[in-house]
């Protein structure tokens, strides 16, 4: 488990939604850098219509925002929509109200993790495995990431993934050992402080 995952698990805000005064929409706005413009949504649906993975989402961004405003918490945090967001920013540039949709999706994922509400384990584990390698080495580690993730979640496709991995190794496109940055201590100090700061937001 990555440091951030352990951190999230032991943090008091694991049960944040049960705290008196918990307001999901306020938390999303506070944790999203800049002005999210979440409450400016006019429910036009340009976002869902532009989304390349929209047809596989439980809710379109438009629906999520309506639910957020209606005070619905569990269904929003359990939705697969933020996890199926591919960060293509099509909705972001098309939104007539300039709602920072992609950034709101990121924030919703972080809150879904810290409240234990995520439903898409594959996506959450992929993000945390990736993050764990960065915390440990300062760099992403494609080989470790793909093998660990595939064995855990995509056993049916492991044979295909092995072929893909071997192809990448053969052509020198995959390292089987991770690279560590020199000043990893500095990065870890920054990360630990950042985790503390996030919990206060």
């Amino acid at each position: 488990m990555s440091v951030s995952a352990e951190f999230n698990n032991k943090q008091s805000y694991t049960k944040i939604k049960d705290l008196p005064g918990f307001n999901l929409i306020e938390l999303v706005e506070a944790r999203t850098p800049g002005d999210s413009r979440l409450e400016m949504c006019i429910q036009c649906g340009s976002c869902g219509g532009s989304c390349p993975s929209g047809k596989d989402m439980d809710h379109s961004p438009r629906q999520l925002f309506a639910m957020l405003r209606a005070g619905i918490v569990d269904e929003v945090l359990e939705s697969n929509a933020p996890w199926y967001c591919v960060s293509c920013y099509k909705c972001y540039v098309r939104c007539p109200q300039e709602v920072k949709i992609t950034d709101i999706m990121y924030t919703l994922k972080t809150i879904a993790i810290s409240t234990g509400k995520f439903k898409v384990n594959e996506a959450k584990d992929f993000s945390e495995t990736f993050t764990g390698y960065v915390e440990k080495y300062g760099r992403s580690f494609e080989f470790g990431l793909s093998t660990r993730h595939s064995l855990r979640h995509l056993p049916m496709t492991v044979s295909g993934t092995i072929g893909l991995g071997l192809g990448l190794i053969k052509t020198g496109r995959l390292d089987i050992t991770p690279h560590k940055i020199k000043n990893i201590d500095q990065l870890q100090k920054i990360l630990n402080r950042a985790y503390e700061l996030e919990a206060q937001r």
Binding site: A5, P82, Y106, K109, S127, V134, K182, N183, Y195
Partner: peptide
């Protein structure tokens, strides 16, 4: 001594970090 940019994954786990 640059470090990983976090791709699209770090911001899914912790915004500040």
């Amino acid at each position: 001594d640059w470090n990983c940019c976090g791709a699209t994954e770090f911001s899914s786990v912790n915004r500040t970090a």
